[in-house]
Design a protein around this nucleic acid. Structure first.
Length: 804
DNA sequence: ACTAGCCACTTTTTT
DNA sequence: AGTGGCTAGT
């Protein structure tokens, strides 16, 4: 009896010791998250709340103290003396007694029992780095590299390299990127004779991708359709899968999908990972898809030690298949889940946080939280209304220059925009001011044609069934193997059901290829030579560059060729780095890294250049000075997101992400008119500006247009009052909520009400019937069935409508 | 096999 | 406005 009490007391003391240990450098909520190791845990981590610190410390806790609650791992029952020892350590705050550590030996969690999943390589890298630092400082005999920290995709690749054969794929399968997928799909369009104007290839691939995100395979999709348009879709989906499978290739979505299948269908595999991964952590949980959720579920063993970290307010990838529901319903998916909220922000000033809180408060679908800080509220945010995008860029550059003179490094400035097209004016002005800048995003190094060529050679060495890669390089450099020949090879291969490579190897056997047989033979010889170097990547790449004549081809191509050659050389040094940094460098390993790397991964925050990027790319980063440009309706929120409440909420989350990137100062600009895509437009102030309380903002727009500006704001404010009167608003608005009212008067019938069944006349689309009307943000979203153009959606106040 | 010229497109995109 | 992709012509 006494024994049980001692045990209880012992465990209690142990817990107390651990809490004390982490309380030194963490706030109470963070400690709570760190010491909650057993059972499902949701950490709602607001922007800048130190969530990576929490994740790292939680892992440290697991590694150092093991399972804090369970006594079944004890070597022997704890005694009164043990309790005294611990009690002493708690009181005096001394080191964890070695005797106690020894007692718990069997309960230690080994590093490989911990799985930490992130979304980007960068995040995974940072996590590994910080775990390494922490472990080296405090823990002996633990190899921090054995913690499995990786992205969803690399993890899946690892799993699939082990067991892909169970799914009928070669273990050396190839990973297709978007570009590869597009090529495949384009070919399918050709064979099926489908017009890509009817269904653009991108759209089609996007839909397939969404289906895979939802774990709907080609067969079950085909079973659930009921119209011709979808039937085409289903055919394309099926054919796409068939071709990839035949090429031994998986696209990004397949990596997740197939891993789910692997775990679902194979009990032994599942048990293998259940046994290994006893503690699972998932970062950026708000951006997981259905498939990724399922994957987490399958990986979680009966102990349900799954900890997810995320911020529902920062979910910005719905358009890519992320479902915010995963985080909103975590407690339903994992009953008994504990929730910890991290709302204390260590990043931004009070003003910035107040603005962020005020904006995001307008969203309905959220868990609700309020960031706070004890930092001062100064200085206020700056807003500026430029005349046009040139003036806007000029203003931003001026601010950056001002900071530069004050001694602020350029790298502390970040300009954020909604779309890439906005970067142009900024770039020009930065160049003119001789300010070094760096654009994050855009073309990846590995997306450059010459790099993809070399990689394709490598891929082909790794997997000779890959027709796509073969086609890419069989005539690069020119070997006199033209389209006609390539098509012939393809046809023969298709007829025989073998790979194109196979056909090439026996080119002499086919009369159709007689004329090109010699050239094809030449290619095969080159290939055979290269295949010798499969186990020495560096040699392989060197030989690809020289033996294929690729270098000569570039050298003959003047200035551009020289630049490309430099890229190729850089690839070579990347290979060197990979070999030096990797324990077991392999061809497939390198190709994986390449396939799964993104532009943001190579973003170097130490280079002293001002940074330009989209709001999306900015997630997870922070800067002293942030400029949010193009704060206009139709730009941010973007034009096509105006129509549904969900889209607007996602845009608002994006705005929230933008605002919370800033540490010291936030500048928001808009223009009166802007040249975009070849035409000049006038957009009114973004509703998000209107959602920021007046007292947080200083307007730096010069006198020249104060009047018109002020007029507009006054008008907007009146509208805003009418709209938000009932709904409790946090604070009075500086600008206004909806600015739609501002554009519409041309057409607006005073407070015209539309109800389903009404007939209307649209200035452009003609006559139609209202199917549905949903009130939304002071306006009404109408679904109208037009006689001529079919069903469309329109905002009642915005659309040129007349009630008949 | 290569190139000029025309057309259509243009939101975001961790992997 | 600028780009990328495709067709037609050499």
């Amino acid at each position: 009896m006494a024994n049980i009490d001692t045990k209880k007391e012992f465990l209690k003391l142990r817990q107390e010791y651990i809490v004390n240990r982490f309380s030194h450098h963490l706030n109470p909520e963070q400690v709570e998250a760190v010491v909650t190791t057993e059972g499902p845990l949701l950490i709602l981590a607001g922007a800048g709340s130190g969530k990576t610190t929490v994740v790292v410390n939680r892992i440290m806790n697991l590694l150092e103290f093991g399972n804090a609650y369970s006594s079944e791992w004890l070597r022997r029952d704890p005694t009164e003396e043990d309790c005294d020892l611990l009690r002493n350590a708690v009181k005096s705050g001394t080191r964890y007694p070695q005797e106690i550590r020894d007692l718990m030996y069997a309960g230690f969690i080994r590093p490989w029992n911990i799985l930490a999943i992130t979304f980007t390589n960068k995040a995974a890298g940072e996590l590994k780095e910080r775990i390494r630092n922490g472990v080296e400082a405090t823990l002996e005999g633990v190899d921090p590299n054995e913690v499995f920290a990786s992205t969803f995709h690399s993890m899946c690749v690892r799993f699939l390299r082990r067991d892909a054969d169970l799914l009928g794929y070669p273990k050396s399968f190839t990973i297709y990127d978007d570009d590869d997928s597009q090529r495949v799909m384009k070919e399918i369009y050709k064979t099926f004779d489908i017009d890509d104007k009817l269904l653009p290839v991108r759209t089609c691939l996007g839909r397939i991708s969404r289906l895979k995100d939802k774990l709907i395979d080609d067969k079950s999709y085909a079973d659930q359709i009921d119209n011709d348009r979808d039937r085409t879709m289903a055919r394309l989906y099926r054919e796409y899968q068939t071709r990839l499978r035949k090429a031994g290739a998986m696209d990004f979505d397949d990596l997740i999908f197939n891993t789910v299948k692997l775990l679902e269908d194979n009990k032994e595999v599942r048990e293998h990972y259940h046994d290994r991964f006893r503690y699972i952590m998932v970062d950026e949980y708000q951006d997981t898809s259905v498939a990724q959720f399922r994957l987490c579920q399958l990986l979680t063993n009966d102990n349900k030690n799954i900890c997810v970290v995320g911020d529902d307010d920062q979910s910005i990838y719905r358009f890519r298949g992320a479902t915010i529901e995963n985080i909103l319903s975590f407690e339903d998916h994992f009953p008994g889940a504990k929730v910890v909220r991290l709302e204390r922000n260590y990043r931004s000033t009070g003003a910035i946080l107040d603005a962020a809180n005020a904006v995001i408060a307008h969203n309905k679908g959220r868990k609700g939280k309020n960031l706070w800080t004890d930092k001062p509220s100064e200085p206020p945010l700056t807003v500026y209304c430029a005349m046009d995008e040139q003036d806007e860029a000029h203003f931003v550059v001026g601010q950056i220059l001002k900071h530069k003179q004050e001694g602020v490094p350029l790298k502390n400035n970040a300009v954020l925009y909604r779309m890439r097209a906005q970067s142009n004016a900024l770039e020009n002005h930065l160049r003119r001011a001789a300010i070094p800048y760096k654009i994050v995003g855009g073309t990846r190094f590995y997306d450059r044609a010459e790099i993809k060529d070399i990689i394709s050679y490598m891929e082909l060495v790794a997997n000779r069934d890959d027709d796509l890669r073969l086609k890419r390089i069989i005539n690069k450099p020119s070997r006199k193997i033209g389209d006609t020949t390539i098509n012939a090879i393809q046809d023969i291969a298709q007829g025989l059901g073998v790979s194109m490579f196979e056909v090439c190897m026996n080119a002499g056997d086919y009369p159709m290829l007689s004329r090109a047989a010699k050239s094809i033979k030449g290619f095969c010889d080159v290939y055979e030579n290269l295949a010798e170097y499969e186990d020495d990547i560096y040699e392989l790449v060197e030989h690809i560059i020289s033996d294929t004549g690729y270098r000569q081809m570039l050298e003959a191509d003047g200035e551009e060729g020289t630049a490309r050659l430099q890229n190729v050389e850089e690839l070579l040094s990347n290979v060197r780095n990979y070999i030096d940094e990797t324990e077991e460098p392999t061809l497939n390993g390198f190709l994986e890294d390449v396939a799964l790397i993104s532009d943001i991964d190579s973003y170097d925050p130490n280079e002293d250049a001002c940074v330009l990027m989209t709001f999306h790319s900015a997630k997870g980063l922070e800067f002293d000075y942030v400029y949010m440009v193009g704060m206009e309706e139709s730009i941010f929120p973007s034009e096509q997101s105006k129509y549904t409440a969900e889209d607007i909420e996602e845009e608002r989350r994006l705005a929230y992400v933008g605002i919370t990137r800033a540490k010291k100062e936030l500048v928001m600009t808009r223009t009166e008119s802007r040249l975009l895509f070849g035409s000049t437009r006038r957009n009114s102030a973004s509703r998000f500006l209107g959602e920021i309380p007046q007292e947080l903002v200083t307007d730096k727009t010069p006198e020249r247009k104060r009047n018109s500006y002020q007029d507009q704001i006054e008008k907007l404010r009146q509208n805003s009052r009418n709209q938000y009167n009932r709904r409790q608003r946090p604070q009075k608005s500086y600008f206004t909520g909806s600015t739609l009212n501002d554009i519409k008067p041309k057409y607006q019938k005073s407070d015209e009400k539309y109800a389903p069944g009404d007939t209307v006349e649209h200035k452009v689309f003609g006559r139609g019937k209202i199917l549905d009307s949903v009130p939304m943000g002071g306006d009404t979203l109408l679904t109208i069935d037009f006689e001529k153009v079919g069903i469309k959606k329109a905002m009642a106040n915005y659309a040129p409508l007349t009630k008949l």
